[in-house]
Amino acid sequence: MGRMKFLCDVERCIDCSGCVVACKEGNQIPVGVNRRRVITINQGKPGEKSISVACMHCADAPCIAVCPVDAIYQRDDGIVLVSKETCIGCGYCFMACPFGAPQFPSGQVFGARGAMDKCTFCAGGPEENFSEKERKLYGQNRIAEGKVPLCAAMCATKSLLAGDADIVADVYRERVFKRGSGSNAWGWDKAYKKK
């Protein structure tokens, strides 16, 4: 089975935030929650670079390690998912995550955090595929439809790659070779390096 990974090519990202809009709209994410974000460093200066980041679906995911209720789990294809009905909103996953992926909507009582929401790689959640409950809690299940996640599908510069790790790595390697410069993809060491 393939291993799903994200890769954002910082040499190509133009800070258009199309991926953020596509994710929010397509998955009907509540206000205040951003599964995907784009940040820019050195804005307006030489060396300006932008990157789009959501959950990296890490190999040895720290969020899974710290969750006190085992609400987070990893599928065989590497996609890390959360069960919103098990999550208690304690926020430990947010503290453990190197990418700031876990997001929390405001809850009903005292404004305490509700269940964690994060990028699902557009693979829904633990509910039955294409069920109304799954759509409501987690958004679309494009992986089950055989499509890549919304963000990567709509990326205008094809900076954001998503899919089988070997193919993603091949595309990137070819780009780096043609550019004759560049370095390892941002976040890959942190997310996927075997300890």
Binding site: V10, I39, I41, N42, P46, G47, K49, I51, V53, P62, A65, V66, M95, A96, C97, P98, F99, G100, G182, S183, N184, W186, K190
Partner: peptide, 28 residues
């Protein structure tokens, strides 16, 4: 475009969650 990949990656990491290696790893 002369900034090295590594230095801009470090800046990006800082913009996300700070020095993960120090406190993130300890907490985890």
């Amino acid at each position: 475009g002369a900034g090295t990949g590594t230095s801009s990656f470090i800046q990006m990491n800082d913009a996300f969650t700070g020095d993960w290696q120090q406190y993130g790893q300890t907490f985890t």
